[in-house]
Write a protein that binds this DNA or RNA. Sequence first.
DNA 1: GTGAAAGCGCTAACAA
DNA 2: TTGTTAGCGCTTTCAC
Lengths: 340, 340
Amino acid sequence: MRTTITDVARHAGVSPSTVSHVLSGNRTISPETRARVQRSIRALNYRAHAGARSLRAGQTDVVGLVVPLQTCYYQRVLMPYVYGVTEAARAHGWNVMLLTATDGKAEIERAVYSNMVDGLVLMEVQLHDERVPLVAGLGRPAVLLGMPADPAGLAYVDFDFEAAANLCVEHLVGLGHRAIGFVGGPQSLYDSEISFALRTQTSVAARLSEHGLEFHGVAAEPNPAGVQLALRSLLDQTPELTGLIVKNEWSVDLIVDALNQLGRKVPRDTSVVVIAGQEVASQVSPALTYVRIPAEELGRAAVELLSTSSGDAPREGVLVPPELVRRGSDAPLVPAQSRS
Amino acid sequence: MRTTITDVARHAGVSPSTVSHVLSGNRTISPETRARVQRSIRALNYRAHAGARSLRAGQTDVVGLVVPLQTCYYQRVLMPYVYGVTEAARAHGWNVMLLTATDGKAEIERAVYSNMVDGLVLMEVQLHDERVPLVAGLGRPAVLLGMPADPAGLAYVDFDFEAAANLCVEHLVGLGHRAIGFVGGPQSLYDSEISFALRTQTSVAARLSEHGLEFHGVAAEPNPAGVQLALRSLLDQTPELTGLIVKNEWSVDLIVDALNQLGRKVPRDTSVVVIAGQEVASQVSPALTYVRIPAEELGRAAVELLSTSSGDAPREGVLVPPELVRRGSDAPLVPAQSRS
DNA sequence: GTGAAAGCGCTAACAA
DNA sequence: TTGTTAGCGCTTTCAC
């Protein structure tokens, strides 16, 4: 049998409402009574029934985390976001329910309409994401972890991939490079219009063009063969490339190898700058110059924003600015004829 | 205002109990009434209030997934398990609540005693895990995703790491290798007695000893420097090694490189066999001979086991047998003097 | 085949 | 400062 608030009340010799108020703290209780009740709570190991509480209070203290897990190979990138979200949620006294929306909208609707969650955090937001208008119409606090083309009045948090792309271009151009290539994620990311993938690529192209430079990009599938294929095709078509911007979590540990196999030394022949999460970038040897995606912080920020979005005012987005860390895979351009 | 069962009843011109029975299906309802009610449900977009239902029914249809996320660098390995668990849970009509037990037992107790979850799946089980006796005493269905020293009557699912270790040893011995080294996970895994880490290492040592061979093992920290350091120290102490068994998710993509840098070609000088999840092993170039850890299947199996553990009978464990896949990083031993 | 009504455990408005 | 009580939305026994 469950321990109920009535059990505690009986044990402490008070009424249930007194116990309730000791718990919630919104009534002045005499110190003695409070102490006695708390002792009983401890003694009986009492916890309020979450269902009853949510029925009565109309809120659950649960955040729904919507993660489309079907993109299997993307999983290793997702975990730090999840971690950030759950940590921040706990700090607010909230629990996290995993909504792996393979059926897309249905699961979200169910969770909200059946009052299982108070609010939502959406991960893996696409540029044109059908979940965004759906969630916007739900009338619940919701935060997008990723920037869509139209946030529909929802708050969002994202890494500033445009600025990151620009930073990479400026860095390489500043080192004298004029022929700069781009290695992007798997084609499927672009097909499904995953927000960051498109934004990064577009910005690289735009900023190169501002410098009067051409854009040379490839998509690389998430495996060794795919990366090698992509690199080869890129360098076959444009052998004069001396700078490489890489936004592809799966190629990071392969890129230097692949370049070596194509007869290019890093950074002597080719400078490489990577945009990636820390856990990816820091695994690699030799250390790569990179722009870190602060996944965990982004997850945290999403929950913080959620805690603010109870109001009805349409919320704006937050873009976290990038920072470039030099780690030795980049070097000033040396004219070909003067190389040792 | 929420849509309630009473709203639906009114809309359909029946009583709430009729609606309830249409939903649950445990009463014979005339086809016309059923159709009318279902139309109303559809029309009003009705979903039962999860809290009310759990209050009344005494169950939540929620599974608590206990993931100690604090071991940050371990995150990339965890996701496939999470995926398997959530998929299988959905198939049972269950939701998944993420319990990132940084405070260990407190969060588990809270979730159970406040009736937020019907059952538990524990990940990252340690050999002597304080959560195991705790959960065993909770009287709720629970499954361990990992084998502890004493399951305390709880069901568990795990990969058969002993068998995997044996398989690796036998394979290398079968190829003629007599000096075989072992590269294990970070020291912290052994310190916290993470079950699989200890079991693997112990089994490798035991099986080697059965063949009259010595055990030479190192722990490697999860970064390039750590792996190189570990390998160097291993090969400094035992330069005659020609076979290497690797159970370290972070070194997989570094091991061949590191061996090259130490002047050893794979598989000519050194044969390498890896125990790792697919998403790790398949990312590497050149392809490594490996024993795949079927993380997703293990997650699924845990939930299946949970669906069976409603009974009170103490449950037994399931060990999933390993399989070795040859991919080219191993070769028969060639005596040193006959090498080209 | 269907309806009325009690009660799951909790909170808060109302009483004292 | 504390107790009494109604009712959140649902299921299910009991009655018809």
